[in-house]
Nucleic acid binder design. Structure first.
Lengths: 147, 147
DNA sequence: ATACAATCTAAACTTTGGTTTAGGTCAAGT
DNA sequence: ACTTGACCTAAACCAAAGTTTAGATTGTAT
């Protein structure tokens, strides 16, 4: 497979694939005699994990670190395992943050639905916390815990 | 409250707060005669939603759009409501992606735990899909659905 | 042999979201 | 009045993650 096909398959642009290669994320990709990249299944598998780490917030330089460890062999197994433990933590933190955001978002939906019904924001803006429906008050309070 | 106190409260740096102000995210902040920003509770509330939108992936320019709508009054209620519907979708998509990533991460944890036990990656690398434990094979397959 | 699409590199450019710097002002306490 | 810490602006700077450009090469099909 050449770079165009890989681009279509993965959804990464051709220039991004070359950028990743240049920055050491795609290690030992084969080349034709003429210098054209020839991707195989192992490269696709590497891309799968690159995309996974990338979309879960890891930086290019950290992914490169992982790929370097992979190339270095069995002495780095522990580092790689720990990286995956750490990344699980990172992802769970991100999900928590998103779920917290969701609460404020849903509160605001309720708020603007009320404003829409009234044709004006005025009433709902002046409303007292006690007058919110219970579930909405709960959302509001959970979204305002921190400060 | 002045900018230093707000910075401590929100966790945003002073320069970030000034940057947000400059880019129209903090609308009509009061100033002392000398030109010093004086924040009140409504500004804190605005910051809460700014931080919520920001951490859930919205761009500064989009948040500014929302703030402009807020300033424009009741004619923009519908736009604001729709923005919150859209942002809910965005967040749910992000959570889905993170959960998908988690599957590959957990598969890799299993993989490297096996490698660690063996002292080498070799055995687990050569292992057949059928030899994976059922739950692990499931993780693997779910992480490889797309391509 | 020629045309043509696909590929290659290096280097410049772009965007986003800030941070840093330089050179001032403000305002509270002494 | 004077010091001092907190604040101000404008402008330059920065890093990350690509994208674009320009000019050259590859390799397949006619």
């Amino acid at each position: 497979m050449q770079i165009g096909e890989i681009s279509k398959k993965t959804g990464l642009s051709i220039s991004t694939l070359r950028y990743y290669d240049k920055h050491g994320l795609l290690q030992n990709i084969n080349r034709s005699n003429g210098g054209i990249r020839k991707f195989d299944d192992k490269d696709l598998e590497a891309l799968r994990i690159i995309i996974c780490l990338k979309t879960s917030g890891m930086k290019i330089s950290e992914i490169k670190q992982f790929m370097d460890w992979c190339s270095k062999g069995d002495t780095t197994i522990d580092k790689r395992l720990n990286m995956f433990y750490q990344q699980e933590k990172n992802i769970n933190e991100q999900i928590d943050i998103l779920n917290k955001s969701l609460k404020l978002i849903k509160f605001k939906q309720w708020y603007y639905e009320a404003a829409k019904r009234d044709g004006t924001e005025k009433n709902v803006k002046d409303m007292n916390l006690d007058d919110y429906p219970d579930d909405i008050r709960k959302l509001y309070e959970e979204a305002h815990i921190i400060w």
